[in-house]
Design a protein around this nucleic acid. Structure first.
Length: 206
DNA sequence: GTCAGGATTATG
DNA sequence: ATAATCCTGACC
């Protein structure tokens, strides 16, 4: 069942924490994929690592939308990451989804990932070699999970409260949360805005 | 118009 | 450790 809309109406750091254990679901013509959110990062309006730190621009506009708005952006020319806008409308904040524990559509996820890998290999000009991705490597990074879930830029500005991409209520809350510094950023690297499920094997950078 | 750089990933 | 890759935002 989809999260109650009120769930998104909390401070961004709280949302990042509360999203752990919830289930990200994407319904597409190819099939349904889903996974438990096991790692997130918060990006606040007064945080130098935040895309919305300076001003509102065409790219970061979804971050200024109402809580629950989807923000998909491209990074390093070839990857995409998905965020959920948070905080009051007009304030640019969001939660980055960094890793999932896959629960549904693992075959479809593997297929989507394989196509992505094949594309990378083609760029390198090397022959394609069949690669078998274990479940732990299907969604263990922000760009990996976006590929596995079939998330595209066309979800930008859409809402988690309705539409094909959604977050469902947790099936279990029987886990401990670890809070540490974020990954892959230069500015604000010392801020403890990363949250993950303690001991979970599906978290990135294990 | 120009240009440096990035919330990553796969490979060596 | 490093290349791949291109869009975005800053600046002139």
């Amino acid at each position: 069942m989809r999260l109650d809309p009120a769930t998104y109406q909390v401070p961004t750091l709280d949302l990042a924490r509360n999203l752990l254990g919830c289930v990200l679901v994407h319904e597409t013509p190819e099939g349904r994929t889903a996974g438990i959110i096991v790692e997130t990062e918060a990006y606040l309006h007064n945080d130098p690592a935040c895309h919305a730190y300076r001003r509102q621009t065409p790219r970061n506009a979804p971050m200024f939308g109402p809580p629950g708005m989807i923000y998909v952006y491209q990074i390093y020319g070839q990857y995409h990451c998905v965020n959920i806008a948070s905080g009051a409308e007009g304030i640019g904040e969001a939660v980055l989804i960094r890793a999932l524990q896959p629960t549904e559509g693992l075959d479809l996820m593997a297929l989507r990932r394989e196509v992505g890998i094949r594309r990378v290999k083609a760029v390198f000009g090397k022959p394609h070699v069949e690669k078998i991705l274990p479940p732990t490597q299907l969604c263990n990074g922000p760009a990996s999970l976006v590929t596995a879930m079939g998330i595209h830029k066309d979800l930008n500005f859409q809402m988690m409260q309705n539409g094909p991409l959604s977050v469902d209520s947790p099936e279990s809350l029987d886990f401990e949360v670890v809070c540490t510094t974020r990954i892959g950023i230069k500015h604000g690297a010392d801020l403890p805005y990363r949250f993950y499920v303690n001991g979970n094997r599906f978290v990135s950078r294990r």
